[in-house]
Amino acid sequence: MSADDVAVRVDTEVCIAGGQCELLAPDIFEIDDDEVVAVVRGDGRLPRNVALEVIDRCPSGAISIVGGSDHIPASGP
């Protein structure tokens, strides 16, 4: 864990269980087979650059950084 770690959360209303997060960061994300949404394991902390990559690749835009400026728009520039 480093100072540059951030915590992430998943908006389960928006998540479509695309599974890209589990592919990129399997230690932090898991698609829950019962609820069919992504869930965050443990405290959900991961390096900022990994978090940004996961947020970027998440198809539904369901992932954001906790305490981030509201939420990081997933739709890019």
Binding site: I16, A17, G19, E22, L23, I31, D33, V36
Partner: peptide, 16 residues
Amino acid sequence: HTRIRRLVASGFTPKN
């Protein structure tokens, strides 16, 4: 879409 997708997505999760 969300309703139908969730229903069928359970069969296509990475674990499944």
